[in-house]
Simulated scan of single mutants.
Amino acid sequence: MELRHLRYFAAVADTCHFGQAAARLHIAQPALSYAIRQLESELGVSLFARTTRQVALTAAGEFLKGEVDRILLSIDAAVDGVQRVAAGRSGVVRLGLTGIAVFSHLPRIARAVRSELPHVELRVVSDLLTPDQCDRLRGGAIDLGVLRPPVVGEGIEVRTIDVEPLVLAVAADHRLAVEPVVSVDDLRSESFVMYDSRDSAVNEAAVRTCRAAGFVPHRAHDASGTPVLLALVAAGLGVALLPASVRALPLENVVVRDLPDTGTMQVALARRAGDDNPVVDAVAAVAAAAFASASARALDSSIGETAMGEPR
């Protein structure tokens, strides 16, 4: 039984008219009549009761019509699904994010993907520092990462999507919490809370900022992730220099102050070098477009970054 015979049968069953069915199928009526007779011969039943005035389905034909409608719908859905996957418009993308980016960047990315790629499922893996994301990208555990360059190791491509300044996080009862303007130099005698990762991009930016002000920060406590870090700050065990998007987090007993003399940090989309998965391409493009204006600012101000597949 050939698929075309099922489509021919469905057209005649829908119209109960060989001439109309042939016109719909764009084939000659004799060829259609012959194909239906072949199908009836193969099944050993009559599917249509034919007279000179009308064509009607037999009981066997009525049963077959229901089955064929179901089969053809399933086949059409399969074809549509295959084409969506090949075009990057369907599938699953595992997205890793830093703890802060879950609050500050995920909502915009998720909304854009839901709007532009409604058949794509995002599976979020959260609270991953940049080194961990790089390891997971190389190992195939995630497909895209939202992280802060520089990346750790080789085989990772990045595209800048946002640039933000560093800000100061202090306990609500800290002496600097009530100051209208805070300078990095005001932190010279402070204890700092930092991430415990040796390759943390946020740590590197904080140390670089302090050294530019003429001192090395006193690292008093280490935290495994952003929630722990903020809890230590809230407890008064130290201050922290963090990306400005930390304001997107629910902060209890923590005050955030701008620092006019700090540098900036980039937020980037990262993926495995050479990954040609079309759905990953599509999600990366949609996510980058969601931050298009920020990306333009980043390209104007950033130092040598490598775009996905396009050296700057």
Results as ranks from 00 to 15, higher is better:
M1L: 13
E2S: 10
R4Q: 13
L6R: 09
Y8A: 12
A10T: 05
V12R: 03
V12T: 01
A22G: 06
A23G: 05
H26T: 03
I27F: 08
A28G: 14
Q29A: 08
R37M: 03
L39Y: 07
E40S: 01
E42K: 07
E42Y: 14
G44D: 08
V45T: 08
A49Y: 12
R53F: 10
Q54K: 13
V55Q: 01
A60W: 05
G61C: 02
L64W: 11
L64K: 05
K65N: 12
E67K: 12
I75V: 15
D80Q: 13
G81E: 13
V82D: 13
R89S: 03
V92Q: 09
L97I: 10
G99C: 10
I100T: 14
I100Y: 05
A101M: 08
L106Y: 15
R108I: 06
A110R: 09
S115E: 13
L117I: 03
V120G: 01
V120W: 09
V120L: 07
E121K: 09
L122K: 01
D127F: 02
D127M: 04
L128F: 13
P131N: 02
C134E: 03
L137V: 10
A141D: 12
L147I: 13
R148A: 11
R148N: 14
P150I: 04
P150W: 04
V152H: 12
E154C: 02
I156K: 01
T160K: 09
V163H: 07
L166V: 08
L168F: 13
V170T: 08
V170K: 02
A171D: 11
L176N: 09
V178N: 00
E179D: 07
V182T: 03
V184F: 10
S191D: 15
M194V: 15
Y195H: 12
A206W: 05
A212M: 07
F215H: 02
V216D: 11
V216Q: 06
V216Y: 10
D222T: 01
D222E: 14
G225D: 15
T226V: 14
L230K: 03
L230V: 05
A231M: 08
L232N: 00
G236Y: 11
P243L: 04
V246C: 01
V246S: 02
L249W: 05
V255C: 01
V256M: 01
P260V: 03
T264E: 12
T264F: 13
M265Y: 02
Q266F: 15
A282G: 00
A287P: 10
A288N: 00
A289I: 04
S293C: 11
A294T: 10
A296Q: 12
A296N: 07
A296L: 14
R297T: 12
A298T: 08
S301I: 13
T306A: 14
G309S: 15
P311E: 14
